[in-house]
Simulated assay, not measured.
Amino acid sequence: MDALELLLNRHSNPRLIEPAPAGEQLDTIFKAGLRAPDHGALTPWEFIVFEGEQRTLLGDILANATQAKGEAEETIEKARNAPLRAPMVIAVVAKVKEHNKVPRLEQELSAGCALMAMQMASLALGFNGIWRTGWFSFDRGVHQALSLAETDQIVGFLYLGTAQVAVRQLPERDPAPFVRYFGK
């Protein structure tokens, strides 16, 4: 798929089945993530892969966090089953480093760019996925269960697999309402 066509037609797909990317394809996806803008060459990212039974372990982590919030059993079970909606889930973490020229936000944005690049690479390879965040990304209990440092921040969970169904084509957007030329 042409790169511009890919960017202009990107669409998340929440209905994912086997297979997920593996081997060289998965390595290519990670390499795309590693090309994200990275001021100071800090490489402020970590990619935590959950596949097979590890998705169940991630579901337990999410369920425990949901239970700790005092949510209803139905909500707890929904959280437990969330990672099973795709054959692979990758938690993308901003590994924020103290730096006098590269603030925290810039490093988190870099990790977000890495996630987007990985999703786009997945699409280019014939897979699909969806970027999910939600409150789990900010929950300290989830962070502790994933052995993250206090300064780390989950920027999202990239659910990957093969599209089970085709998604409807999104309408083209006119950029004019979103663009302002300064001084004009």
Rank of each mutant, 00 (worst) to 15 (best):
W135S: 13
R85K: 15
S137E: 06
P87T: 12
F138N: 15
F138D: 12
A124H: 15
V167F: 03
L123V: 10
I90Q: 04
F157Q: 02
A145T: 01
K78P: 01
N100W: 13
G129P: 02
V165H: 08
T66R: 03
T162D: 04
I76Q: 08
V92F: 00
G129Q: 00
E73W: 10
G161Y: 11
G141S: 03
L115M: 09
Y159G: 01
M118W: 13
P103R: 13
K78T: 04
R85N: 14
I154V: 14
L109R: 07
C113W: 13
P103Q: 12
V155D: 00
V93G: 00
R80T: 13
W135G: 13
E150T: 15
R168V: 09
S137A: 12
E150M: 10
L158R: 09
L115H: 03
D152I: 09
A121M: 12
P83L: 08
L125D: 04
R173M: 15
T151F: 06
V89T: 11
P103F: 15
L158Y: 08
T66W: 00
D139W: 08
N81P: 00
M88K: 15
R80N: 11
V167Y: 04
M120S: 05
A117R: 12
R132Q: 04
W135I: 13
W131H: 05
T151Y: 06
M120P: 01
R132H: 02
L84Q: 15
A82V: 02
Q107W: 06
P103C: 13
I154S: 11
S147L: 05
V167G: 05
N64D: 14
A72V: 06
D139P: 02
I61A: 03
L57V: 05
R104A: 11
R85C: 10
T151L: 09
L123Q: 07
V142R: 00
M120D: 02
N128C: 08
N100F: 15
K69Q: 12
K97V: 11
Q153M: 11
R80K: 13
S137Y: 07
W131L: 09
K69C: 10
L125F: 06
I90M: 07
T133V: 08
V155I: 04
E77W: 10
L146T: 13
I154M: 14
R173S: 14
V89C: 09
I130D: 11
C113I: 14
E73L: 15
